[in-house]
Amino acid sequence: MIPENLKYTQSHEWAAADSDGKIVTIGISDFAIEHLGDIVYLELPEVGEKVSKGSSFGIVESVKAASDLNSPVSGEVVEVNTALPDDLETLKSDAYKQGWMIKVATNDTDDYQALMDSSAYNEYLKTQED
């Protein structure tokens, strides 16, 4: 269910670093998507914008409410999945691959290493059931 090769935040974003750890791809987990209900709007940043760990890089909205998307790492947005806001079905069907949101260039690999791995996230999810 939860990809083992990714890292996770408590606010249900996932992150995947490339081999040298300098580019981190970011999305949201199936749990987040399930929990939000029908997602009807997604707002992503532009290439070149700065993001910082724990701060909002975008907004995802269901019919009922808006939620911040929090960046797992600090750095600069180098690529944005610009097709995603117009194809929210993809987010639902393939959250961990086609449903990626942004790629961030980062110098601080410690931020990434400090994130939860899949087994820690799995344990964390058990505390999140409502």
Binding site: G37, D38, V40, S62, V63, K64
Partner: peptide, 10 residues
Amino acid sequence: PIQYASGIVA
């Protein structure tokens, strides 16, 4: 019930 399995939009 806030919604059923099919969701608010459906």
